[in-house]
Design a protein around this nucleic acid. Structure first.
Lengths: 201, 201
DNA sequence: CGAAAATTTGACATGACTCAACTGGAGTGG
DNA sequence: CCACTCCAGTTGAGTCATGTCAAATTTTCG
């Protein structure tokens, strides 16, 4: 299932980390030594319900989603992520308790994975990474906050517009059915909203 | 506006902190020396939109809410908090950027406040508090996650039931109008849901 | 190319909102 | 303590938003 391919390409992740903290060459070397490069086919799982999320994942290429499945087997997508994003089941990764959800690949995707063990080693050796992940988690928290506000204050059409504005890149690559699931509406209804939009403009 | 009353009662907050980390007497003494005891009347503000959230607040008595106001002046409540909870505008408190929202008192409320400056001092002197606040913020993140899932997967009635089950204490003290705002439905509609419930049981 | 899945469309059903009227309790000033 | 106001809560009629189901069409992937 899990493949390791060509040499690790780390420039994107270093750029990502450098947005928030400064690293010297030896720190960069140590950090990248802790990463594992892996490739996932469409529909392959990174996290499954009932298992502990062992890694946090930085996407170098592709697209992943995080979703829950209800009693009737319906999928509810709580997060999408593309290149230059970190994704995991944060709740499980941080608490090391079994996950309530699934993370799988929407496209063929390559990630750099950092295991929970290496995550802790990293903090010990290069404490400024604590700051880095604090900021990453803070930003995730703030994004969630905004989404909750949207969900209680906006109608479906406005939520869709907000999604398009925030994540223009995703609209191109994610099937509408899945965007509908993320927004909490049926695919049929999202289709109607879209057709309204076309005739308007 | 802001009142300081009788001697500080710290047993509740010490119990709260001790759920996650162990403190010795001198650490307790230092921690409590950083806190400010304050009392707020109903409708008094702890945080206002446009101002930076200077403190994080531990509630020893009473009830607060966090809300946004949209262009039409409608209030959307994103959080309630009662005794033994921490509340602030976390986004503003952590980033020290102006707040997008308001925090005010639903009842007469007493809090122990920790300023951003003292928050940092505390980490320097007693580093295990980093762990404490990491866990507190983690829990807030996980709670938000659940709420997002509810909002995309459940109808209003089920969201209301989930709210009652999770926060039974709040149902007693928070006006229904405000619970409706929190759930993202109109007060009229919540009233209908409640009456359905009564006839059922 | 062919099967499977995504998207669209339409008819109909249900969920949820709006507005207005009414009720009752909580706070206020005399 | 009373009279008054104000606001939360309830109720009902009408409307709009969104869901369900089924069928037709298009796209995607193997």
């Amino acid at each position: 299932m899990v493949k390791k391919y060509r040499p690790m390409e780390t420039s994107l992740i270093i750029k990502n980390v450098s947005k928030h903290i400064s690293l010297n060459p030896s720190e960069i070397k140590y950090f990248t030594s802790l990463l594992e490069h892996q490739k996932f086919d469409r529909k392959e799982f990174l996290v499954k319900k009932g298992e502990v999320a062992s890694h946090t994942n930085f996407i170098t290429h592709g697209c992943l989603r995080n979703y829950h499945m209800d009693e009737e087997g319906v999928i509810h997508i709580t997060q999408f992520a593309i290149e230059d994003w970190w994704i995991s089941d944060l709740a499980s990764f941080l608490t090391q308790e079994p996950s309530e959800c699934f993370v799988d690949a929407i496209e063929e995707t390559e990630v750099l994975r950092l295991s929970r063990t290496n995550y802790e080693r990293l903090f010990e050796k290069v404490p400024k990474f604590e700051r880095f992940f604090r900021i990453i988690h803070q930003n995730a928290f703030i994004a969630q906050n905004r989404r909750i506000l949207d969900s209680i204050s906006l109608k479906a059409e406005a939520r869709y517009n907000a999604f398009l504005q925030r994540y223009p890149a995703m609209n191109q690559r994610i099937p509408q059915k899945q965007i509908a699931s993320y927004l909490g509406v049926t695919p049929e209804f999202l289709s109607i909203l879209r057709s309204k939009k076309v005739t308007k403009s």
